[in-house]
Nucleic acid binder design. Structure first.
Length: 140
DNA sequence: TAGGCCATCTGGTCCT
DNA sequence: AGGACCAGATGGCCTA
């Protein structure tokens, strides 16, 4: 898995000490850069995990890939945006608001997600959206 | 076994 | 000079 790094090479026996020192400095910098890059990528993955938690994921027991997460977030934001602009035009009650969300979230908006149409799945979706609706209300 | 997804390493570029 | 960011390469793991 790990490609061979310069640390694999043993130069200690035949190198000029100054070259060796220079080489070791390069290796130290490379190792430090690798660690920083790992940390950066871990931060990025944490952000993806946080995004997965707030993005709808019904009927999907498998974790969304990074690409799917971004696609879903995009679609979700677009849908909420549409809901917001629609609801500002006519003040719909809660259930109508949810129905509106359902209309906005058809499968063509979520190409990465399998669409489930059973009452159970719809109910789960309403529950999920109720939660988001509360958050939405707090924010606005 | 092939393909998808991912973590890691690496070198390059840009910014402070 | 050092750090952040990026993209390509590579190899491991998992699933159909």
């Amino acid at each position: 898995m790990k490609p061979c790094t310069p640390t694999c090479v043993d130069l200690s026996s035949e190198c000029d000490p100054r070259d060796l020192e220079k080489f070791q400095s390069v290796v130290r910098k490379r190792v430090a850069a690798n660690a920083r890059e790992r940390k950066r990528m871990q931060g990025l993955n944490t952000a993806f995990d946080q995004l997965r938690k707030v993005v709808p994921q019904w009927g999907q027991d498998k974790k969304l890939s990074k690409y799917e997460t971004l696609q879903m977030a995009l679609s979700y934001i677009m849908a909420l945006n549409r809901i917001l602009s629609d609801s500002s035009r006519n003040s719909a009650p809660h259930r109508q608001w949810l129905d509106l969300q359902y209309d906005s979230l058809q499968s063509e908006s979520y190409p990465c997600i399998v669409k489930y149409s059973s009452p159970t799945e719809n109910e789960r979706m309403y529950t999920s959206f109720s939660c988001h609706y509360e958050d939405f209300q707090v924010l606005t």
